[in-house]
Amino acid sequence: MPGDTGQERRGLSLRLGFVVLLSAGLMLADNRLSFLGQVRAWLSAPLYPLQSLVSNGADLGRSVAGWFTSRESLREENVSLRKEHLRWRARLQRYEVLEAENSRLRALLESSARLEDPVLLAETLSIGLRPEQHTLVLNKGERDGVFIGQPVVDADGVVGQVQRVGARSSTVILLTNASHALPARLDRSGLRAVVAGTGFGDRLLLNFVLPNADVRVGDLVVTSGLGGRFPSGYPVGRVLSLEWGANALTRAVVRPAAQPGRSRELLLIQRPSAAPPVRTAHQVLP
């Protein structure tokens, strides 16, 4: 029986010490080196059915709940959706005109930048990660062409980037993760800055802004395209407030535009040509 005699207890502490060392080594390796990615992909393959089982179960529950939705609420939803549809159509007309004009102007400038990037639709696997973790798991993986560092957006803005890729699933690190940062600029003034996650779901920080810089509350922050991972022009968030930071510099609190918890569908932006050489996923962006 373990724990019975001194010898047994020594055995236990020996095993514990071994396991502690092993885990520490594993964590270091996982944090710093990339070769464990393959091991992880290999280990996670048999677990995928379990993840999709949970996800499909949740879908089933939702559709069963859908049968019992009342006619009244469906009608209300229909009316509001119709209104929204109309509003978007109106905006889309303007957009089409603008896009045509833009491409004409670009053709004049002989530049080939495009407004639209090809995207891959992915769903979040609802595997109940704790909110403090600030990561998501998507149902698209290496087989679908997902790569490390691939930008992820939702309908409202940038969500994050792919951190790890498995065969059929991938892990996304969110903008709000405290170890994430991305290069951005202000849409109005063109000021460039780095937007860092804070570990809080509803705020990002624009650090190291000069006190006299042109930042105002309500400014739209978009990706700058510097650093090569995120294409430029995707909304990141809006400046919520300005506060004093370190060394007499100001910092701006930004409310993220994307709400990854709200919808299950996310878009992976495919830009294989612009992908930088892949290195470890924990590397903070320049």
């Binding site: 396991v19 502690v20 092993l22 885990s23 520490a24 080594g25 594993l26 964590m27 390796a29 996982d30 944090n31 464990l36 091991v39 992880r40 280990l43 996670s44 677990l47 379990l50 993840q51 595997i127 990660l129 973790q133 990561t135 798991v137 790890r164 498995g166 699933s169 892990t171």
Partner: peptide
């Protein structure tokens, strides 16, 4: 750890 896509070794330890 693998199931949650977490740091390998975190829950293991």
């Amino acid at each position: 750890d693998v199931y949650r896509g977490d740091l390998l070794g975190r829950n293991a330890l």
